[in-house]
Design a protein around this nucleic acid. Structure first.
Lengths: 251, 251
DNA sequence: CGACCTGTTGAAATATATCAAACATGGTGG
DNA sequence: CCACCATGTTTGATATATTTCAACAGGTCG
């Protein structure tokens, strides 16, 4: 499903030298990296950690891609903007995700904070050199990239052939998945995105998203708690909807 | 060895010498790979080349991903099938493209020949071992993967926010691009796909695709030559349409 | 308090899907 | 060689899901 596979549930953070972010470096490497800690510092030393606030742009579509960004905490949306103002979101990213790693010279999309967030910027050059020196990590990177590719292809299916309800269901299911990976509840979901954000992600208008939420609520599929959290009351039925397995004809 | 699960309608395989396909191996490596030819043979030796006919399935969604396939010649569609019969195409692939390389254990989509084609099957294990031994190639692979990811994200934008006409225009432009890369005409395009294939790729019905082609024809944007080729009469206008740059208001 | 943002809901407009029929095309076999 | 068939295409009429436009409600924040 569309989304965040790359996930170590946010390791404890520890900044040795000022600005440096060893935590990010180690997250980059993954859980069981057969690397000497000293090597990590090579990367960490070239990183700067910072806190940003909801709505801030981390980098803009078109900016030279000189940095890779690790999301330490918070939620980020990746959006493409069309000349006439239409927006499409490539995906949402959360703690533990890496964004902005690209083959191109420029970022193909903007990254915007949906919540207050902590991020860590890594110098692209240094990261690439590091990867070249450590093929094991480069192999992990390839693996990561292929997973993200698969997730994006899933999303393609959603946008190409799913109805509005199926799209929203697919999103909720994938969000539950993402929270599970991060050791958070699978049924009580944090929803940092606005209806407009969801519309951009799912290829719908914000009104349609809102209507689908209402319909789900009426059918007893979900319950809204305040504005930023959804409870899945019938994950199984949502799952079937999200996989186009019909049989949820009812009400 | 449970051999024949990979391609149920087992395409006829032409075991020439020991089946080796040096051409595929070198394509995999890329043009200017700093590798000794002997090394290529390691990969080539484990490959089998074969000819398949239009409509054949190269591998099925759900099949164990034991092979990587290189398209030597012809056109292939990658499609995902939903339980209720809906189809969505991930993309089309042509000569020189590599398909089926994945992080998962199983193929997430089916690969079907749109034309008679020549393909080369590489053993996944061997390829992976080869990559591990040759980090330079692995780095190229990562680069390839990131490019494919970027292309898929582009497609996401198309499916999420483009009108039917914009989608078809985007497809034609990208097809022209693909032919240009392959040193073929940028305005006289081979169109191996049926209207239904295009619909699957663009998230439309075949009728809508047909109507858009007719509309483009009426407006003097394209001309159809027989059934399998399109001539772009106004590439610039199509380009603007494909990039949502408006200003093609007219008729 | 008032301005603003997000969300909800309604009514009308519209792009695309669906259903249906006729039309090309290319291959096959008599 | 032609008739025929299967397959793909075009076009039309209608249906429908989603968008668009619009009004209103509930928070939040200065």
């Amino acid at each position: 499903m569309p989304g965040p596979e790359l996930a170590t549930p946010a390791p404890p953070i520890d900044h040795r030298s000022p600005g440096a972010c060893l935590a990010c470096a180690s997250r980059l490497v993954g859980l069981c990296a057969p690397l000497h800690p000293d090597l990590l510092e090579q990367v960490a030393r070239q990183s700067t950690r910072g806190r940003i606030t909801s709505g801030d742009t981390i980098f803009h579509q078109g900016d030279p891609a000189r940095e890779i960004v690790s999301v330490v905490d918070g939620a980020v949306r990746l959006v493409r903007l069309l000349p006439d103002g239409r927006r499409a979101a490539i995906g949402f990213r959360f703690a533990g995700d890496l964004i902005g790693f690209t083959a191109g010279r420029e970022h193909a999309f903007s990254a915007e904070a949906m919540t207050d967030a902590t991020i860590c910027r890594l110098d692209r050059r240094h990261l690439e050199q590091f990867l070249h020196r450590h093929p094991v990590i480069e192999a992990r990177m390839l693996d990561l990239c292929m997973r993200e590719l698969a997730a994006t292809q899933d999303h393609l299916l959603v946008l190409g052939r799913f109805s509005a309800e199926e799209r929203v269901a697919a999103f909720l299911v994938s969000l539950a998945e993402a929270q599970k990976v991060r050791r958070r509840s699978e049924v009580m979901l944090d929803l940092p995105a606005t209806r407009a954000d969801l519309g951009d992600l799912l290829g719908l208008t914000l009104e349609t998203v809102s209507r689908v939420f209402s319909a789900f609520r009426r059918r007893g599929l979900i319950r809204l708690h305040g504005i930023a959290r959804v409870e899945l009351l019938a994950p199984d039925r949502l799952h079937r909807l999200a996989h186009a397995e019909g049989s949820d004809a009812g009400a």
